[in-house]
């Protein structure tokens, strides 16, 4: 919010945000970013811990639960936590006048969908990591942080050099941010919305397949 005040203070924010107050413009995107960040965190070290440090996954699958169920259970918990912390975030932002209308509820859903897709993919990867090593650091440094910086969270991607813009299209966070922001600002553009939803749905479906497969491989051997 301080960031927004600085930008608004120069009078240049309105030009980039299409006349919308910077905080109102930023809030839904931050919702998506925090969903993706907590998705990435909850899907790395806690997953390795389940397999290796505390080994609670092994305890679970010693009972009637299957590796697939354990994977889906962990993912559901991550998604539930994202949803709850996102709702709290919306409450706080609303108190500071950062919410334009009820569309923010859809933003929360879009953010949670984005987080779920990222979480499933990251969990699938984390389940293949045998040693802590540098795998997770690399993931955070070279995937998560660049994604948060160049997905249109803090500034519109059309401010980036033209050749970088197509790169942002592969970022799930960019799709989530577009959805969340359009919903918050009550902008209705059917085709882009469908495109973003489809992209995130495909990633989530892929993540679900991969995460169940990697949990089975790791636990049933």
């Amino acid at each position: 919010m301080g960031f927004g005040a600085l930008i608004d203070g120069t009078g240049r924010a309105a030009e980039a945000t299409g006349g919308v107050d910077y905080l109102v413009w930023l809030a839904p995107a931050l919702l998506a970013v925090s969903a993706v960040q907590s998705a990435a965190f909850e899907s790395t070290y806690p997953v390795l811990s389940g397999f290796k440090w505390q080994r609670i996954y092994h305890a679970m699958t010693a009972g009637p639960l299957s590796p697939e169920q354990v994977a889906l259970g962990h993912l559901s918990w991550t998604v539930a936590k994202m949803g709850v912390s996102g709702a709290v975030f919306v409450g706080v932002v609303a108190a500071f006048g950062g919410v334009a209308g009820p569309g923010i509820a859809l933003s929360l859903l879009a953010a949670t969908l984005t987080g779920a897709a990222v979480a499933a993919l990251v969990m699938a990867f984390a389940a293949t990591v045998e040693n802590e090593g540098a795998a997770f650091n690399g993931l955070f440094r070279f995937v998560v942080i660049p994604m948060t910086l160049f997905s249109g969270t803090f500034f519109p991607v059309d401010r980036l050099p033209g050749w970088v813009q197509p790169v942002t299209w592969i970022s799930p966070l960019w799709h989530g941010t577009e959805l969340a922001r359009d919903a918050a600002l009550a902008v209705w553009r059917p085709l882009p919305v469908l495109g973003h939803l489809a992209y995130l749905a495909v990633l989530l479906a892929l993540g679900l397949v991969l995460v169940q497969r990697s949990y089975r491989r790791r636990l049933a051997r």
Binding site: Q54, R55, I56, H58, A59, A62
Partner: peptide, 11 residues
């Protein structure tokens, strides 16, 4: 019931 070699309690 399974008692594994390494304890795997939930800390």
């Amino acid at each position: 019931g399974v008692v594994p070699q390494q304890d795997n309690l939930d800390a």
